[in-house]
Design a protein around this nucleic acid. Structure first.
Lengths: 142, 142
DNA sequence: ACTTGACTTAGACCTTGTCCATTGTAGGAT
DNA sequence: ATCCTACAATGGACAAGGTCTAAGTCAAGT
């Protein structure tokens, strides 16, 4: 975490209270907040932070490769601080909970040339969908 | 295609000019239009059709399982009429072109129990990203 | 042909995200 | 310790994608 701040300072990032707060909010595993959620949480720590700043900072973190943009939700983009260990996502179809997962196998290898339409394929994104234990429980009980 | 209309009528769908036009616009392989694109094309055939109707109709087709919503683009949802043959997508990172692909292997099987967090996993969505032949050509020449 | 409830319409409204002119400030220079 | 200035933050307007509502319309059963 403070690793992140160190790394950013090293890259010539100007350190401001706003940027620190955004970085802090994004700390942790299985964290996948929308920009607005980041903003709400940031406001708690720094009431005068503006929406635009949160968007700017998130955008910069993404360009710097420190944070990933994920589109598991079909509405808002979500931001994933776990950018240094490649992974995929498991999403609850009911409550939207998201977990980072590391499947075996290499989906890239599973795409035969005949199915590549001449594309140079460089990346795969896998999203598993299902129902989390929590939602399964409440559904059966109800 | 008229299969689709038959099937829908069989399910008690009231057949209207608007719905017929939306279904017609969505016909074909490798079709992945945004709601607005569907609307623009529908307007050509039926000038007085409204945006809300297009959204409603697309939503119904999705609930009925006749059309898939795909989120390859991070802006607008896209609608894929190829709902009865499971497939994944290959997207050009530059121009946004989308192809339907059928990779070998089963990514669902690649997710070990230890990585399922107690979820009941039912579905996988795979998006391959790369550069299409067209964009590769224009980039090298430019 | 009549009736009725499902369908459509237009436009207001909401959410997510971007832009811009202005004001503020981190951090190097003095 | 203070000053400068380029970079960052602010807030409010704007844009795109999508949803909702009240009122009018029409497909299809009788």
């Amino acid at each position: 975490m403070s690793d992140l701040l160190e790394r950013l300072r090293g890259r010539g990032w100007r350190m401001t209270a706003q940027r620190r707060v955004v970085a802090e909010v994004l700390d942790g595993d299985h964290v996948h907040l929308t920009a607005d959620e980041v903003h709400s949480r940031a406001v708690v720590k720094l009431p005068e932070i503006s929406r635009a700043t949160v968007y700017n900072t998130l955008g910069e973190l993404v360009s710097l490769g420190e944070v990933l943009e994920v589109a598991t939700d079909k509405r808002a983009k979500r931001y994933d601080p776990n950018a240094h260990r490649p992974h995929h996502h498991l999403v609850c179809a009911q409550c939207g909970a998201i977990k980072d997962v590391h499947p075996g196998g290499n989906p890239l290898a599973d795409l035969p040339d005949s199915e590549r339409f001449g594309f140079t394929v460089s990346d795969v994104e896998v999203t598993y969908r299902g129902v989390c234990p929590n939602c399964a429980a409440t559904t059966t009980t109800a």
